[in-house]
């Protein structure tokens, strides 16, 4: 479904990705694991057009457009790190924003019903400002919003970041549920163990390079991976509030 070949990303003098290749087959969940700063977000942002890159990205057999809004129109949607919900809009309006590329009346209602079914909490909060939601609810909104465009594929970045341990598991289960509805997933999550468990295939990223890849189960049992990412001391997840997403300088 999505094929990234020899992708390079740099931010000025800082090189974040040194020619990596990733293949996401249709209908599967593919996970990316790696330490902080390994380049996971850079990869997703490059695919979704937020960051310029060198290399080729093929999607559904065609070269992927380079501009974000054109990419979304193709059914490839990025759920960004930090959720980036529109705090100034209501929950309902956030979902409508997600439906921007699928604006037909009947379709919207159908998609809205599906999202509400998946996240009943969002229905209760529909008329509330999104800025008043809890961290978990924001994540539901971020995923729900992405689903409003009926995507064929989702890029999901750190969906469980900042959530209580119980919710971490729930959010990742939801990703599986979305996948079972036929959406291909490329997942990055701080909870490496759980994301390898749900992944069909996974890549290990280290300082902008892929150092290992294989089926999720295989990497779970890999000794080097266990020591580096699944070690006895569990990675600390901060349960602090979401950093406020401010305005961006460019548009």
């Amino acid at each position: 479904m999505l094929k990234v070949e020899n992708m390079h990303v740099s931010y000025g003098a800082v090189k974040a990705l040194h020619g990596i290749s990733v293949d996401v087959p249709a209908g599967k969940i593919v996970a990316l694991v790696g330490a902080n700063g390994a380049g996971k977000t850079s990869l997703l942002s490059a695919i979704s057009g937020l960051v310029p890159y060198e290399g080729t990205v093929t999607y559904a057999g065609e070269p992927l457009p380079k501009r974000s809004h054109e990419i979304v129109a193709k059914g490839l949607v990025h759920v960004p790190e930090g959720r980036r919900i529109f705090a100034n809009l209501t929950v309902y309006e956030n979902l409508m924003a997600g439906a921007y590329t699928k604006w037909e009346k009947n379709g919207i209602q159908e998609n809205l019903d599906r999202v509400y079914q998946l996240f009943p909490r969002l229905k209760d909060r529909a008329s509330q400002y999104a800025g008043t939601l809890s961290g978990g609810e924001r994540q539901m909104l971020a995923i729900g919003r992405a689903l409003m465009s009926r995507p064929r594929m989702l890029l999901v970045d750190e969906p469980s970041l900042g959530l209580a341990p119980l919710l971490v598991s729930q959010v990742l289960d939801l990703i599986v549920q979305v996948n079972q509805q036929g959406v291909t997933i490329l997942l990055v999550d701080q909870n490496a163990r759980k994301s390898l468990q749900i992944a069909d295939y996974a890549y290990v990223l280290q300082q902008g390079r892929i150092v290992k890849e294989g089926p999720g189960q295989e990497l779970l049992n890999d000794e080097a991976v266990q020591i580096a990412y699944l070690g006895g001391r569990k990675k600390q997840s901060d349960n602090g509030a979401d950093p406020p997403t401010g305005r961006e300088d460019d548009c």
Partner: peptide, 21 residues
């Protein structure tokens, strides 16, 4: 109008909704 309000808040997130800035 919705797109304008989204872009005013976070233009990159708006682009991820498929909004053409």
């Amino acid at each position: 109008g919705l797109a304008i309000r989204c872009c005013s808040y976070d233009s990159r997130a708006a682009q991820l909704m498929g909004i053409n800035p």
